[in-house]
Design a protein around this nucleic acid. Sequence first.
DNA 1: ATGAAAGCGCTAACAA
DNA 2: TTGTTAGCGCTTTCAT
Lengths: 330, 330
Amino acid sequence: MKLTIRDIAKMANVSPTAVSFVINKKGSISDETRRRIEEVIRQTGFRPSINSRRLSAKKSFNICVVMDVGASLFSDMFYLGVTKGIQQEASALGYNIVLTDFSGSMPEIVLNRDTDGVIFFQDLESNMFDIVRGLSVPFVVADSHISHAPYPTVGIDNQRAAHAAIKHLLDCGHRDIAFLGPKNYPHLFESTHSGYNEAHMDSGLIPQKSRIYESDETTTSAGATMAMILDAKPWPTAVFCPGDRQAIGAMLRAQELGARVPEDISFMSIDDTMLCRYVRPQMTTVHIDMEQLGVHAMRLLHDQIDGKPTDNIILPMDEVVERDSVRRIG
Amino acid sequence: MKLTIRDIAKMANVSPTAVSFVINKKGSISDETRRRIEEVIRQTGFRPSINSRRLSAKKSFNICVVMDVGASLFSDMFYLGVTKGIQQEASALGYNIVLTDFSGSMPEIVLNRDTDGVIFFQDLESNMFDIVRGLSVPFVVADSHISHAPYPTVGIDNQRAAHAAIKHLLDCGHRDIAFLGPKNYPHLFESTHSGYNEAHMDSGLIPQKSRIYESDETTTSAGATMAMILDAKPWPTAVFCPGDRQAIGAMLRAQELGARVPEDISFMSIDDTMLCRYVRPQMTTVHIDMEQLGVHAMRLLHDQIDGKPTDNIILPMDEVVERDSVRRIG
DNA sequence: ATGAAAGCGCTAACAA
DNA sequence: TTGTTAGCGCTTTCAT
C-alpha cells in the first residue's frame, strides 16, 4: 500500500540512505544518482512519513503558539494578525503552527515536548518561562513590553510609536495633550509615557504632569477616566492613548457626554486594528505591522532552535495613519 | 536520560505491554498491577513519547484547520471565535489544532497526511474536497451555507436567524423592510431571503420583491447599494442584512448621506461580532454562537474519524440582541 | 492477566 | 560516494 523509503530505494537501485539524503539534501550524492532517485520520487508521488521522521530525528516539526484564552477580542484581533505572520514564516521553514490556549497552566503540548519551540504572546510571569526552560524547549515572546528581558523577545518600539503620535498632534497645533495610559501594563505605560515626554521636549515644550491619566486597558475603564477628564475645565485639546481599545473607549464616552470629536477634542491611538475604520470619526493612529511582528518572532525562534546566538528585537514603527479624529488647529 | 516505557516497566516489574495498557486504558490489567504502574508513572513524572506513538499507531493526533488566507478581517473575527470552540473540544479529545492557510492549493500537512482530519471554513470548490477524499482524510466544513451538502457539514440555520431578525423588526412596527443580501454568497442569500419572506407571511404580510437588494459582502459594496436605496423615496423604514459587515457598511453610508439612525431608518444584522458594539448607534443583531459552531464541528469530525455514521448539523440560532439601531415605531 | 517480540518508516553512525 | 545496520519508543499480535 503506502510506499516507504525502502521501496523507493529498490526502485532506484540504491540504499535507503541515499534516498534519505536526497530528500533531506544532506550527505553527498552523485548528481547521477540523485537524479535517478528524484525521478522515482516524482513518478511515484512518494512522500516520506513525517511520523517516522519525527521519531528518528527527535523533532516534532511543530511550533506552538500560546494565546491567553482570557484575552479580549481586541488582543485576539491583534494576535491573529501576528499569527498570520508566524504561520507564513513557519510554513516556509517546514513547521506546523499549533494553536494552544493558556489558561494558567502550561499547555500539554509543551509539557510533552511535542513542539520544537514555543511563541508566547506578551510577557508571562517568570515562573512560566522557568518551566519551559526546565523542559529545555526554546521559546520567544512576541509583543514583549520589556525592553531588556532576560529571554528572547520581539517587541514594538512603543516609545517611538508614542513619539510619532505626539509629534503628529503637536504638528497639528495641539498644545494641551492628555496622555491616558494603561495602568495594568506598567512597562507599556512607561515607554509610551517617555515617548510622550520626549516629543514634547523635542519641540521645546514642557509636558505637564497633570495631563497624565491612567485607566485599565478596557473600553469601560478608559471611558470612566475620560468622563473624569471632561469633568474639569479646561479640556485638553487632544487625548492620546497607546492602544486602540483605550482610545476608542475614551472617544466614544466623550461623545456620549456631548463632546464633539474632533471639533471639541481630538483623539489618537496606537495599533491601527480594523476598529479604527469602523468608529466615527475614524481614528487617527500609528500603524503597527502585526504580521511583521510575527515574522520576526518566528525567525528569532528558529535561530534559537538552531542554537544561534540572538539578540532581542525591537521593531521601530512610527507610520501615522491620518483619519478623522484629530483636528488641525489654527 | 529520558524515560521510556521500558524503564517504567522495569521499575514496576512488569512488561512494556502492561504499561502501554494502563496508559491507553486498553487490554486487561489487574487492579493491583495497574495501581503499581500508575504509581511509578506518577512518581517519575513519565510522559510517553508522542512521536513513537504517532509512528506505531499511525495517527498524527493533529487536526488541521484551514482558513482562507484572503479572507477579510471580518471573517477572521468570526472564524477565530469558531477556532476557539474547536480548540477547546480538540484538546479535550487529545488533538493538536494546527492552523493552516489555504491559498488555492491544499496545505502540505494534509497532502502529507500529517493530520487525522481537517476542518474547512466555508464550502470550497468540490474538487478540493475530492483531493481530501482521495487522500482518505476525514473532513468537515464548518459554517457551510449549503443545507444538504454531500459531505459532512455544520452550519447555522440562517433562515431561522433571518426569520428572527425580521420578526423583531415587524414587532417593532416596521412594515417596509428592505433586504440587502450578499450576492457573492448565493446560498446564504437564498436561505436568509426565505427567512425574510416567511416572517412576513407569518404575520400576514406580503413581502415586496422591490425591496430585495443585493451587494457584495463588503463594507463598500453594501455602502454603494445603500446609497442607491436612499436615492429613491420613500425610504424603507428598516434595512436588514444577513451579516454585520454588510449591515455596518450600509448603516455608516446612510449616516454619511445624512440619514439619522434609527430615527429615519433602522438597521439590523446577523452575527453579533464585536463590531456591533463599537459602531454608533450600536447594532441590533441576531447573536451567533461561534464557539458552539466550532465545538460541533470538532465533534462531528471526531465521529467521522471514528467511522461513525453522522448527519449534517444545522444549529438553530435566533437570539436577538437589542441595541440601538432599530427604532420602535408607534 | 501478562509478556515476548515484531514491527511502524525513517535517520545517522559506521563501514566499505 | 554508497550501503549496512542499529536504533528512535511506542503498539499490538500472539503465546503463555
